[in-house]
Design a protein around this nucleic acid. Structure first.
Length: 126
DNA sequence: CAATTGACTTGAT
DNA sequence: TATCAAGCCAATT
């Protein structure tokens, strides 16, 4: 059975370092889906915010702002968790992406996925 | 298989 | 700078 896309999302989110954040679009891009931002958001939505093994709070939108809808409490919890990790929000409720955005190399991401699922897509034939 | 939805992103007005 | 619309992907029904 192939690994579901959302599982890949969870794996990568779990690899986000403390005090760092990632945008939905960046997660999708690192997973090999440049325009899969919505799919990433959908995957995290499926967590229901009840999954302590996934630091879902470290994923914000490209503007550096909490993007949760339908659950103001979850959004505030996300912000509180980030602040607890040293992330500072501006007066526009936005954080400085240039400072907190995690920018791993593609090799790092592939290594993480391989360690968790045994093999990344690694679609290139040799 | 087609239609709908959603924690997104980008470009135009 | 703010608001609106279209594009995009994966999962659900």
């Amino acid at each position: 059975m192939a690994v579901s896309f959302n599982e890949l999302v969870y794996t990568l989110v779990r690899a986000i370092p403390y005090g760092r954040v990632l945008s939905y679009g960046r997660v999708a891009d690192l997973l090999g889906v440049p325009h899969g931002a919505r799919a990433v958001g959908w995957a995290l939505h499926n967590l229901g915010g009840t999954e302590p093994t996934v630091p879902w709070h470290r994923v914000v939108n490209v503007r550096g702002r909490v993007s949760i809808k339908g659950s103001p409490e979850a959004a505030m919890e996300q912000r509180l968790r980030l602040e607890s990790e040293g992330v500072e929000f501006g007066e526009d409720d936005t954080l400085d992406m240039r400072r907190y955005l995690w920018t791993p190399t593609l090799a790092e991401v592939e290594e993480i996925l391989r360690a968790a699922h045994g093999s990344a897509d690694g679609g290139d034939a040799m």
